[in-house]
Design a protein around this nucleic acid. Structure first.
Lengths: 222, 222
DNA sequence: GCCAAATTCGAACGCCCGTAAGACTTCCCC
DNA sequence: GGGGAAGTCTTACGGGCGTTCGAATTTGGC
């Protein structure tokens, strides 16, 4: 059996996540360890030990440690972008193609903030993505810089909502908004925990999203 | 002679930066390499080679690679905080102890943005600090989390300027503002360069500061 | 000009890393 | 149930890492 295809070829994606095949054990373990400790601080031996598989599995199934990181990054980024695009699309439908500022920003910020919720299965994925964005390989940074087609949809929508602003201005404010989001790394999770005395609740995440939206919306209205 | 004291003990700080003693060569080379490539991606051999000194110098003068990182972090953080505190103090003097929102935020954002200017001698230091904040050792992250006395002065001032906001709200909005700032890492420097066709000018940095201030101020007024 | 302390130097140690090679086992199809 | 592909396992290679050690050299006070 090829390492990447289901034999029946009927439900690869759904089963891929939970199936206990070696490749997925490695994928999940690596994502968690990378998110918690950073790419450089996690060895292939750490990953395979945590996954309970053989040392050679990483190179057999992914080619190299770098390729593994890149594969995780690609998959999670695609998932996040899909959720964002869906929300933006829905906002467009609701508002005849010209959604208000807050709806556009909500489409950008709600998916990642949802992932951040305490029991969300993508919680660790978001931490991984934030880390990969700044600590990743040159290849990842290259993708982030060149593949801006996804962000383009948001800057276009924002420009339509605030046609009096110059494209540069919109670009920078979008950049600021993403900065607010990406800064939610570990130390800040901790603060979130402190505020709610050790347990981040779903309500805290909703409140955080609200605060971010209000702040960013005001910034865009300035 | 002790490695850390001047013999005359009359002008340690001023001379320390430019004096071509080994310890400072290591300090400067390490700061640059850490800022450009990250802590984990720079070896002691890289540092000593770039500084033109012997391999053992790092351990002789600083004790270990980790301690070297921490020392750079401490010095640059202190310098940045000093400039910020000075600006906040001046804003207080100008406004009878109750400066307007924008002046407080300017005291927070202007010093790092000044460092970012094209020919500023602290340009690389700011990149180092931003990197160290997220990629640094546990010791650094511990300091960032526990030593909040410096930020406290700003949140207090902000609370006085917006007494209708709850302390939590002020805290989060301050956190958002810092996120905007800290996101100005490399990929974003590149974009800055693209906008001005290869050369970041002083004017671009001033414009960026203006944009950030307007965005953050509006966010705080929301 | 001498002595002791400070510094520099070359060399090496022990460790862990990513990766690869080759033998072995499991699985599926005919 | 035999054969070949797919996967797993053991083992080890080559190399870079941070750090250390002892000898050589430089420095500054007397």
């Amino acid at each position: 059996m090829s390492p990447s295809n289901d034999a029946t070829a009927s439900h690869e994606v759904e089963a891929a996540e939970t199936e206990a095949v070696t490749k997925n054990l490695v994928f999940v373990a690596a994502e968690r360890l990378f998110a918690l400790h950073g790419f450089q601080n996690v060895s292939v031996r750490d990953i395979t030990a945590a996954a309970g598989v053989n040392l050679a599995s990483v190179n057999y199934h992914f080619g190299s440690k770098d390729a593994l990181l890149f594969e995780i990054f690609k998959r999670r980024t695609a998932e996040l972008n899909r959720e964002r695009a869906k929300m933006l699309h829905e906002a467009n439908d609701r508002n005849a193609g010209a959604p208000p500022l807050r709806d556009i920003l909500a489409a950008l910020l709600t998916p990642p903030l949802r992932w951040l919720a305490p029991d969300h299965e993508r919680r660790i994925s978001l931490q991984f993505l934030i880390r990969a964005r700044s600590e990743g390989t040159d290849e990842i940074r290259q993708v982030l810089k060149t593949d801006v087609s996804h962000l383009r949809r948001f800057s276009d929508a924002l420009l339509r909502a605030r046609p009096d602003l110059s494209p540069e201005e919109v670009y920078w404010r979008l950049h600021f908004t993403l900065g607010m989001l990406h800064n939610n790394r570990f130390a800040e999770f901790d603060r979130l925990n402190v505020l709610s005395e050790g347990q981040t609740s779903e309500a805290d995440v909703v409140a955080l999203l609200d605060r971010m939206l209000s702040f960013a919306e005001a910034g865009f209205r300035a």
